[in-house]
Design a protein around this nucleic acid. Structure first.
Lengths: 205, 205
DNA sequence: TAAACAAATGAACACTGCGTTGATTATCTT
DNA sequence: AAGATAATCAACGCAGTGTTCATTTGTTTA
């Protein structure tokens, strides 16, 4: 299309991208120089600046690309009626995440970009829960403030994503969706078999 | 004690620390130069190097200080018998976190240090759940893999901490402990009032 | 309080990476 | 095949790094 049909550009951007991803994993994003990237990519340093303003721009463009893809998926999903309809939606999301595992794994890891952590969490809150869960909450029934509920779920699911990626995606998206569902619907302690019945605890305070 | 009883050192380290914290909040850690810090702290740049190897060392020392304090608290706690005994423990932790809110807020925020995120999450897993929760799990009862359970809970609680700090700690440690307890023991969806009874969902798959 | 010590300052050093430029070469599109 | 543009190469001033050394300032302790 309009955006850079020149094969040289495609090639250059691709090798920059992989060099970048690998180097983040090795040294971490901020210990990283443009020179590192161009050396690794076997590219003239000036060429880098033909495509990116600086290393932050490079990071941002890669992140945006990924985010846009995710938005594309999430926006096609209509709000669920029955709570179990979320399962295939979760599967779809994890399929997509799996396709970008390399980049995600590094960027969400300990040497990654915390602002991307925040961005992704925010997206999960907005597109998933505030559309699918929050509407079902009758305020008078909620036992905890809603913002904490949302943070709890968003972070928890975020943690599942991280664990899945870091362990090398051993489970299928279906398995993961099932795990998430059980944990959130039944409660982590119930799912663990620690608490036998929610009731046991309900009437305490 | 032995470590630097000279008042000049105390003073210098203190002003470096606050300048550092403020600057992280303003520009983010990696957009930050040693010169920025010393200028803000109204300190000779050479003085900085008298105390820290570089800005990463400064970050690490501050983080370690905080972590050690947390370990000190966690290690005095004996494993709980009844699951509700964790409540005062959670309270104690949040009291401590509250004392260091300024630093934590920035370092756990979008401009913070992702490796510290990981470190704190790991600590929570090890000291809290693997000591207090995991032993109670009978493997045959667990509906989900334990590593996912641990990730789920650790991240979820991590999210609560972040939300609490970012919103300016409006709730007391007691309130937060109660919120966490409800969410984890009853399950987030139950606590939200979305699911009426866990049973409703238990026998599906 | 005075002497001895240690911290903080200020100025200079070479070094590394940054972001940009202009001329030249290589590769692509039409 | 011709024209366009991407990539290269070498060079530039600039900013921040981490180190040094002589000097001044402050703190401790005898």
């Amino acid at each position: 299309m309009e955006s850079s049909r020149d094969r040289r550009v495609i090639r250059t951007k691709a090798i920059i991208r992989t060099a970048f991803t690998n180097l983040i994993e090795e040294k971490g994003f901020d210990a990283l120089t443009v020179k590192d990237i161009t050396t690794r990519a076997e590219i003239n340093r000036g060429t880098f600046y033909l495509h990116y303003r600086d290393k932050y721009d490079l990071l941002e463009q890669n992140e945006q690309e990924l985010i846009q893809g995710l938005i594309g998926i999430l926006s096609t999903m209509q709000p669920v009626i029955d709570i179990e309809q979320v399962l295939p939606q979760i599967v779809r999301v994890f399929e997509y995440l799996g396709e970008h595992a390399d980049f995600l794994k590094t960027i969400l890891g300990p040497k990654g970009d915390p602002s991307f952590h925040a961005l992704l969490r925010k997206m999960m809150s907005e597109h998933l829960f505030e559309k699918n869960v929050v509407p079902f909450i009758r305020k008078e029934n909620a036992l905890v403030p809603i913002n904490y509920l949302v943070s709890y779920i968003a972070s928890a699911h975020f943690g599942i994503i991280q664990e899945w990626l870091m362990q090398g995606r051993q489970e299928s998206p279906q398995e993961i969706a099932s795990i998430i569902f059980k944990l959130s619907a039944l409660g982590p302690l119930y799912a663990a078999g620690v608490v036998k019945d929610s009731k046991q605890v309900t009437d305490r305070r």
